[in-house]
């Protein structure tokens, strides 16, 4: 990651959006997960190892903002960032199809994994009804916001490639 200050800035903006905007644009109780969007885009543009690291930091912030067990979102977003980075390397799609597919898949994985983690840790959440009433609406909302935010976020987080030869420039 060769844009650490940009990333820190984006995480701070994510914190502001999650605390100050997400609660007030919720639809039927579903609010978008801005940190999940940041992690997914960071993983898409920087690879799986950096995706996992951004996921850990973003997840930790999300844990400290919520009321659930601290470390659960850090675990989920680390794994999501890592898997998203791998998906990017193994999917062959062009244009909008790749980011939309990966963003959708990552959002679903992130929310679903969190449900699995909190249920494993002893939460009394009803597993299957939580998928319908919580995981899917939140995922759809997050995908919608992610698709809108992707062009700007990916431009900001894209690693600057060092130019090794004139041939690469051409």
């Amino acid at each position: 990651m060769n844009k650490p200050y940009t990333l820190i800035g984006i995480l701070i903006i994510g914190f502001i959006l999650q605390a100050g905007v997400a609660p007030y644009i919720s639809i039927m109780g579903a609010a978008p997960n801005f940190f999940l969007i940041i992690v997914t885009v960071a993983a898409l543009t920087n690879g799986s190892d950096k995706g996992a690291l951004v996921g850990f930091v973003a997840g930790l912030i999300l844990d400290l903002m919520g009321t659930g067990p601290v470390g659960s979102w850090a675990l989920v977003l680390s794994v999501t960032g890592y898997v998203t980075g791998l998906l990017d390397q193994h999917l062959f799609a062009e244009g909008w199809l790749l980011p939309v597919t990966v963003l959708s898949f990552a959002s679903l994985i992130g929310e679903f994994l969190y449900l699995c983690v909190v249920v494993t840790l002893g939460s009394e959440l009803p597993f299957f009804s939580s998928i319908w009433s919580l995981v899917l609406p939140t995922t759809l909302y997050t995908i919608f916001i992610a698709v809108l935010a992707f062009p700007l976020l990916s431009r900001l987080l894209q690693e600057e490639q060092s130019i090794a030869s004139f041939k690469r420039v051409a």
């Binding site: 190892d49 996992a52 930790l60 067990p69 601290v70 659960s72 680390s78 840790l121």
Partner: peptide, 22 residues
């Protein structure tokens, strides 16, 4: 291998955090 090692470290850190928190 290095990438997987990195992920395992982060997952282990998360689990330690959850344990300490609880």
């Amino acid at each position: 291998k290095r990438k997987i090692g990195w992920l395992i470290l982060l997952v282990a850190l998360s689990i330690i955090l959850m344990t300490v928190w609880s």
